[in-house]
């Protein structure tokens, strides 16, 4: 059933966010530490486990795939609810600091992502098709 996939997703997210809160508390900070990241790792591992045993029905995968495909529209709604006016109101210091941080971070990306022994990109994206949803998946959205 479709809801099984959606429920799996919901349970992963709630557990991850809960763990993230606990991690934040144990470190004594008022923030969720990587809750969503933990949830993602859980989902990847659980889906992998269930698929290998053939326990994840196509309908359940469709439930997961739907939310995965809704990601881009949600991101667009997110962009429309950003405080853009507030960002520009922050004055030149805020704008210069934000722009400089992004520009410098961009420059560092190639330095950090290529290693000395020049790892060749090994067609990992093709591999992904094995683990991803076959029919409905975010990668099929243009």
């Amino acid at each position: 059933m479709v809801i099984f996939g959606v429920a799996l997703l919901a349970i992963c997210m709630l557990s991850g966010v809960f763990l993230g809160e606990l991690l934040g508390l144990s470190l004594g900070i008022e923030a969720n530490v990587g809750g969503v990241g933990i949830a993602m790792l859980m989902l990847v591992l659980i889906v992998d486990h269930l698929k290998k045993r053939g326990k994840l029905s196509q309908a359940a995968q469709d439930g997961l795939g739907f939310w995965s495909a809704m990601y881009i529209p949600i991101v667009i709604a997110m962009s429309a609810s950003q405080n853009v006016a507030g960002a520009l109101d922050g004055g030149p210091l805020a704008i210069v600091a934000g722009v400089a941080a992004v520009a410098i971070s961009w420059m560092v990306v190639p330095i950090l992502s290529t290693s000395k022994r020049e790892e060749v990109f090994d067609g990992a994206l093709d591999e992904n098709h094995l683990t991803g949803g076959e029919e409905i998946n975010v990668r099929d959205i243009k």
Binding site: V36, M40, L41, L64, S68, I74, V75, S81, E127, V138
Partner: peptide
């Protein structure tokens, strides 16, 4: 347009981000 805030708010955003992990490969991570 209040719903835009709900659709693009933290809850659904995080839910959809977690859902994208459905297509990710653990080996790559």
């Amino acid at each position: 347009f209040a719903g835009i805030g709900l659709m693009g708010g933290g809850m659904l955003r995080d839910f959809a981000i977690v859902a994208t992990a459905f297509g990710a490969s653990f080996d790559e991570i």
